[in-house]
Design a protein around this nucleic acid. Sequence first.
DNA 1: AACGGAACCTGAAAGC
DNA 2: TGCTTTCAGGTTCCGT
Length: 268
Amino acid sequence: MPELPEVELTARNLSSWLAGRKIVAAAVPRSRIVRGASGAAIERMLVGRRVNGVERRGKWLALRLSGGAALYAHLGMTGKWVTRPRAEGPLPHERARIDTRDRSVRYRDPRMFGRLVPAPEGVAPAEWAALGIDPLRDGLDGERLGAAIAQRSRAVKEVLLDQALIAGVGNIQAQEALFRARIDPRRPTRSLTARELAQLARGIAASIAHTLAVESGPEISYVEEPGAPNPFLIYARQGQPCPRCRTVLQRIVQAGRATVYCPRCQRR
DNA sequence: AACGGAACCTGAAAGC
DNA sequence: TGCTTTCAGGTTCCGT
């Protein structure tokens, strides 16, 4: 279940697998992942084209193709791009495959919340165009963060999940960043001081950098998967002691999503 | 306009 | 053991 760091690592992997190479075959069976187009249309767009590069913005990916075309992709909750030998058969929940002369790249997605959006003329889908500041691509400091979110009255944790404001932060990164910044997730966003906004911007950057460092590799594991380690400071650690002050971490629900926080060292 | 809640899906873990 | 419930890091849509 990917957020900015996992999508960034996916973009790097896809780039190393595909950039500069020609697509010799593609298979995109009909599924709800493909909307507003047919799988066959995606196959036609891909085959014969060269992959110029892979771009990420927020939780979206863009495969830039020769001739000005692009394939936009979102991983949803359970989407994952992996590479396999061309001779290997379809993986469980495989929704697409892209083959070069010497490798096969597969898209797996059990829950099918992901998306594949063809753009033969390169025109980005509305979801891509609507994305806000990307902390990794655009850089984020207290001032820019404040300009994006400061007037909001909703809880800061909920506002951080709005992709139109800050792109790529999801339920884990929001919790981790607020913990690092020592800010209570329930605080009305507009109550944050300039100093706290600066701390939060640093917290977001630090959490993303930490996640990138610990998760990099050709098969990115998501923390909710069976047997996967939890590399996070507080995510899903309710009931455990705070790593900073040993107070028991609490779990609450905000806008239908779980939030874990330390009631002592995250300031109200 | 903004908000909460349900919906979209499957699979694994926890509960009974 | 096996059935039921809950939960999951995604977005979107609908009613208020």
